[in-house]
Design a binder for these strands. Structure first.
Length: 105
DNA sequence: CTTCTGACA
DNA sequence: TGTCAGCA
């Protein structure tokens, strides 16, 4: 990888993030206001969109195309986030059992 | 870059 | 209701 990429990779300002996902900057701000997204902020207050944020933005575009409104999309994204948490939680629980994490007297 | 406001389908 | 343009 190139030297400069180490710092720029993964974090984008709203202008470049909007162009990457093909959306307006105003929409991205609205999605955050509606609770669909929570991008990072610099100390100055500028939004920092991660690769993960870009993925959810693309997911928002798909869900909008289907016909869901922003309230419905908010629920879907939250449910998917909860699902991922439960999956990793279940995975670590299975790992602990397989590794004999707790001694069986 | 930010928030806010108003017009449009 | 979601999108977009313009202003401060």
């Amino acid at each position: 990888m190139k030297d400069g990429d180490r710092f720029t990779r993964g974090v984008y300002a709203i202008s470049v993030a909007a162009e990457l996902v093909g959306m307006g900057q105003q929409n991205l701000r609205l999605y955050e206001r509606k609770g669909l997204l929570e991008p990072g902020r610099t100390l100055g207050g500028t939004r920092q969109y991660s690769e993960n944020d870009l993925d959810t933005l693309r997911r928002i575009g798909d869900l909008l195309e289907i016909g869901l409104n922003l309230a419905g999309i908010r629920m879907v994204l939250h449910l998917e986030a909860d699902m991922r948490d439960l999956e990793s939680e279940l995975a670590s629980a299975r790992r602990s059992r397989a590794d004999g994490f707790h001694s069986e007297s």
